[in-house]
Amino acid sequence: MGVDSGKALSQNPCLHTTSLDSIHSIITFLESKGIHQKDLGRIFGMCPKILTSDIKTELNPVFNFLSYDLRVPDQHYRKVINKCPRLLISSVRDQLKPALFYLQRLGFRSLHALAYQDPVLLVSSVEKTLIPKLDFLVSIGFSRADAVGMVLRCPGLFTFSIENNFKPKFEYFAKEMEGSLEELKEFPQYFAFSLEKRIKPRNIAALEKRVKLPLPLMLKTTDEEFEELTRQGCG
């Protein structure tokens, strides 16, 4: 199946004592849920713990969660699992349902979007990942309502590291770009762009041309479009 056995064993030592019959049962179960044979190498490679999971108490509840809580039709299980294999090693009671409840309370209304676009949010710890990201946005000056609005518009904010993403990018934005919180509120996608490869070079180029561009224009445009904007002095 293309699984790195050494890596799998190091991440899941229980595989040393797992029978081939047990592994075959898990493969058969996943295939019965619509997962293709060609998907399994990647899925097991990312989450080797699946190979020693209990079908009745661990794997089956995840598919019940997809069906009853996220309203995912049987024929679409494969799409969701391929998007986020970690769903299969997440406790429904301790992780998936609490995360779904928290996200819905924040204002995430679309089950379709959570299932097919942002399932990684469901495997993120509410206490250790989701809440701290909101708290950081509040700590730099946003109201809680504005912070919530930002993550609703750009759910990817919940996946970014505070230390490696938010802090350095906000520091650069505030000090070097002299930007306002209102700009980030309107364009939270700023944090999705590379600081070294996109934000800094574009900002420096704009400064050299003495052009002030709105964040979306500065960051979302192609190199050719950006060069044309700075040449024309549009801002």
Results as ranks from 00 to 15, higher is better:
V3N: 04
V3R: 06
D4G: 08
D4P: 08
N12A: 15
H16K: 14
T17S: 14
S22W: 08
F29T: 11
S32M: 05
S32E: 12
K33C: 09
G34D: 12
G34K: 06
I35F: 07
I35S: 05
I35K: 04
Q37P: 00
Q37A: 14
L40D: 12
F44H: 08
G45N: 11
C47W: 03
P48N: 13
K56C: 03
T57S: 15
L59Y: 10
P61F: 07
L70H: 02
R71I: 09
Q75N: 09
R78I: 01
K79Y: 07
V80C: 05
I81D: 04
I81A: 03
N82R: 15
K83C: 11
K83A: 10
P85V: 02
R86L: 07
L88V: 04
S90E: 04
S91L: 05
R93K: 13
D94R: 12
D94T: 05
Q95W: 00
Q95S: 13
K97I: 14
P98Q: 05
L100P: 03
Y102S: 02
R105N: 11
F108P: 02
A113E: 13
L114H: 06
A115G: 05
Y116H: 14
Y116N: 07
Y116K: 11
Q117K: 15
S124F: 00
S125C: 12
S125K: 02
K128V: 09
L130W: 00
K133I: 01
K133W: 03
D135P: 00
D135N: 15
V138K: 15
S139Y: 10
S139M: 11
S139I: 07
I140T: 10
S143K: 14
R144D: 04
A147I: 11
M150I: 09
L152G: 08
C154A: 14
G156Q: 01
L157S: 04
F158M: 11
S161W: 01
P168W: 10
Y172G: 07
F173P: 02
K175H: 13
E176N: 13
E183Q: 15
K185G: 06
Q189H: 10
Y190I: 04
Y190R: 08
Y190H: 08
F191S: 03
F191G: 01
F193K: 12
F193N: 03
L195W: 02
K197M: 10
I199D: 06
K200M: 13
R202D: 07
N203G: 00
A205L: 11
E208F: 00
K209G: 00
V211A: 09
P214K: 09
P214L: 03
P216H: 07
T221G: 01
E224F: 04
E224N: 05
E224W: 00
E225W: 02
F226V: 03
L229G: 01
L229H: 07
T230M: 11
T230N: 02
T230H: 00
R231T: 03
G233T: 01
C234H: 07
G235H: 02
